[in-house]
Amino acid sequence: MTTYKTTQKRARARVSAPARRPAGKYLAIVFMVVALGYFLTPLIWLVISSTKSNADLFNTFGFWFSPRFNLFQNLSDLFARDNGVFIIWMKNTAIYATSAAVGSALISALAGYAFALYRFAGRNLLFGIVLASVFVPSTVFAVPLFLLLSKSGLSNSLLAIILPALINPFGVYLMRIYAEQAVPEELLDAGRVDGAGDFRIFAQIAFRLMMPGFVTVLLFAFVGAWNNYFLPLLVLSKSNLFPVTVGLAYWNGLATQPGNSQVLYAIVITGSVVAILPVMIVFLFLQRYWQGGLSLGSVKG
């Protein structure tokens, strides 16, 4: 089957090659390379700039290194600033993003599995409500959430941003679609005949089948939480609870105030590099998983 397909493809390529205009092909390649340059240039600038001192940031060309390699000095300045608060911010972000991602992916998997494999009263209505909530702008929830959290005394703890992040309606939607594709309906009956309880069937068999979808939801929830700014900005007021996004924006605000600028630019730039590295690594190393899972939302959406 596979060999047949490949030979057929090759044959077609040979036949249609003269018909395809090479000029158009080269144009497409140039276009793609220029686009790639656009997407990567700001990141290259960021990395180059993180190796410069404040003075060199202003005095040397932005897209090349200065003769003085200042990265290590910048890093030690970054971690020393405000009694090492940057490490606390990174730790907060790590705790927040990891627990939000693991928690929300698990909760979404359970809910998506129920929607996919069980017929129960209120199923369509509930799913409709969940789906509709995807389209409500988060602003509408943010202000009342802040008020409710501060009333309940949670507003000055990491739980204030972790708990709301556990509820991921789009994740439920994706897990339902994935479970429908990956878990055969007969599994439940077969498992019951063998005497397994429904939760054992889920934990030991179905969950494994749902793994690729689960990893996709997990990763995107991780990145969403790692990069989140709006809710933490609203809810948290103590700077030692900030995630790194809120912290960097706060330093940047200080940097642009007259008088402070000379000190903070290099620190903000170096801090930005440190803050984005974990997400980049996660994405690059787990690309096989999330790229497969991405097709879920689009195919049936």
Binding site: A35, L36, I276, M280, V282
Partner: peptide
């Protein structure tokens, strides 16, 4: 490469 900026927090993207 085209996707990489998505992994950058919007705060950092705005800073850059």
């Amino acid at each position: 490469g085209n996707f990489l900026p998505f992994a950058v927090p919007s705060v950092v993207a705005a800073l850059i």
